[in-house]
């Protein structure tokens, strides 16, 4: 297991280049949420020449659709959703300067290549840990597409949000490495 690295958003190219697949990272600062429906709208907005609900430069998008907040809490359970559904959209956002995505599962070869080309990272968070991860979210505010309910775009303020580097900007892939190490032939 790599070292624990603390990062604060927005991220610079320098921050990204020092990360390697398998590194444990604690993220603090502002991150944004978006799932398939929100991504679709963002890409359509770009195609119409409109602005995105937030400037993606240097930012991180967390693939999550939280459950409703209980009274007194900023947000409900908030673990990652499966990332491959964002494969059609992520490369365009990375090309615009998005520095990180947080999700679970594999993403496409194209996403991997974009991470290398544009210096970005795909982080993994532990799925099915919604209660634990919600405690690292200090503030949550819907900033766009409110009608999408759980899928609306939110601005989150996080503190020591635990993730692991899955695809780094040097072509490293935690899944590939991990499976190679633990696979037993025959």
């Amino acid at each position: 297991m790599g070292d624990v690295i603390k990062l604060t958003t927005p991220l610079s190219d320098e921050d990204i280049m020092k990360l390697k697949a398998g590194d444990n990272v604690l993220i603090s600062g502002v991150i944004y949420t978006g799932r398939d429906a929100a991504h679709k709208r963002m890409i359509q907005a770009l195609e119409r020449g409109e602005e995105l609900p937030f400037d993606v430069k240097g930012q991180i998008i967390y693939y999550v659709g939280p459950s409703p907040a209980r009274p007194g809490r900023p947000v409900g359970a908030a673990g990652p959703t499966t990332s491959y559904r964002m494969n059609p959209y992520a490369p365009k956002l990375i090309a615009l300067g998005l520095k990180g995505m947080i999700g679970k599962g594999k993403m496409s070869q194209e996403v991997k290549e974009h991470c290398q080309k544009y210096k970005a990272v795909y982080f993994g968070a532990v799925g099915g840990c919604g209660a634990l991860l919600s405690q690292r979210i200090k503030k949550a505010e819907v900033i766009a597409y409110e009608d999408l309910g759980p899928e609306a775009v939110r601005r989150l303020e996080v503190e020591d949000f635990p993730v692991i580097v899955v695809y780094d900007a040097h072509g490293g892939d935690l899944e590939e490495m991990g499976i190679k190490e633990y696979r037993i032939e025959g």
Binding site: G65, P66, G76, A77, G79, C129, G130, L132, Q135
Partner: peptide
């Protein structure tokens, strides 16, 4: 890495039981 994941999963189950939030947002 796998062990760390499993320990988070177990801790999460405890937090959900205390009604912090559901086990999973889905």
């Amino acid at each position: 890495v796998g062990k760390a994941v499993l320990s988070m999963i177990l801790e999460n189950a405890e937090l959900a039981k205390q009604r912090v939030a559901p086990i999973c947002q889905d």
